[in-house]
Design a protein around this nucleic acid. Structure first.
Lengths: 251, 251
DNA sequence: CCATACCGCGAACACCGTTCGCGGTTATGG
DNA sequence: CCATAACCGCGAACGGTGTTCGCGGTATGG
């Protein structure tokens, strides 16, 4: 009574559906091509620019054709995310020090985030890991092997925390790089107004301290900020890792 | 030369636009009503269920009418997020121990996340903080006041890390609670298949260890998991906080 | 060799966010 | 005090979206 109702469960994940059937003519395109086109659009115009119609146009065909390769737009996003994850180099040897090894993985992962900003736009809710994602995870677990203080689920938690951390820090870095996009400028102005209004003294103080928000002169690019951002990333990631992997937090 | 071109900058944030003009008849509805209706829809059907048309229908009017209260759908989402943030109780006294105080704030914030799962669906990219969000931030900074090892920007970073952490742990908790929604079931089956295929031994081991994924019997709910999830949350948050606020990570 | 399963894709459906412009309402400046 | 300018509600429409249906053509398994 379980074998026959799997036709309802046949709404299966992309990675399990075969790339092509065995009967008909050969497909004129491949999932890889769809993915590449979609990633190109997203790199240029954000995740919102990735529509079934646009991707189809990019490939010189109609929207309906894509549904031979993919069950829907969500599958397309899954393919994109996994392809981007595959850009992280996992052929780097391990030193045996979990903090060092995970820090390196985090740095290489951040590079991908900076190269594909749309990764931050995909809702974490809908994240369904593909083969490359699982390789990424396995690598992290390999780096965590020397750690004996954590159980299996504990290690998975730690990796999840690390990934969320990398995403967040990448978002910060991206906001610092590109010139404000109007929406951000408005938000910035609102922040100034509220701070000036008093009532949030500590926030005001924290903002006054550092370079987090520079004067933001006219608005056009021009002053490119070079590689200056490596330091805070390493510092924060290291501290979090040390906290996560510490034997016991005292009491 | 700055005062006159602000007409281009008049694409301003929601919080700065007045609720109503001074000339015409009184509006029949309020932003608060729009927000409440939108949150109701989102609580029931996710963020995707929040469309201008649906909200309008909920209020018994046409889509165009909403644009008197809001510049677009994004403003609506901003209002929702800020309203939800306002549900976090900030009237809790501080003990003076930053770890304890921030842990409490994190726990109360997670409650809101669990009550409004759609918060995790809003892309972090588009997050523009409103007044309640700034209050939340100010409270966290107040809890961090005794910490002298961190500068202003450093504290802001720490709070950002904490918020990302709470979001991630809430996502985990939510996934564990509700019965898999088909998409998640497919993902789960795929995971089993890959693990059975070998090639990810550490992942297999980690999954075999704990209760992260129970056998997943038939599929229907039934076995409600009670409040059992407080422990890992506190443990992880505490460790991360200790790492973030530690004087110096050794060398 | 032919039935079967697949491929490409034009056409259509339902929904989405957003804009325009109209008639009615209200406060204000002269 | 009243005319005018600013505002409110909203029907209608535009261009975009994801997705489905069903057709003619093609390669392959039995």
């Amino acid at each position: 009574m379980a074998d026959e109702e799997d036709r309802a469960t046949e709404a299966v994940v992309v990675w399990e559906r075969p790339e092509r059937g065995a009967r008909g003519p050969a497909p004129e395109r491949s999932r890889e091509q769809l993915t590449a086109a979609a990633i190109g659009l997203a790199d240029a115009g954000g995740l919102a620019a990735v529509s079934v119609r646009q991707v189809a146009r990019e490939l010189g065909t109609g929207p309906a054709s894509l549904y031979r390769y993919v069950a829907g737009r969500d599958d397309l996003v899954d393919l994109m995310v996994d392809a981007a994850t595959g850009e992280v180099d996992l052929d780097v040897g391990l030193t045996g020090d979990p903090v060092v090894d995970l820090l390196g993985l985090a740095a290489r992962t951040q590079e991908v985030h900076l190269r594909h900003p749309w990764l931050l736009e995909v809702a974490p809710e809908a994240l369904r890991t593909g083969p490359r994602g699982l390789d990424h995870l396995e690598y992290a677990l390999r780096a965590l092997e020397p750690v004996t203080e954590l159980t299996g689920p504990g290690k998975l938690e730690a990796v999840a925390v690390l990934n969320a951390l990398v995403a967040m820090l990448s978002a910060v870095e991206l906001r610092a790089r590109r010139s404000p996009t109007g929406r951000q400028a408005a938000q910035s102005a609102y922040l100034d107004a509220v701070v000036a209004r008093g009532g949030h003294p500590l926030l005001a103080g924290a903002l006054a301290d550092g370079a987090v928000r520079e004067p933001a002169a006219a608005g056009h690019p021009g002053t490119e900020v070079p590689p200056r951002a490596a330091a805070p990333f390493e510092r924060v990631v290291r501290r979090v890792l040390v906290g996560l992997l510490a034997p016991e937090p005292a009491a």
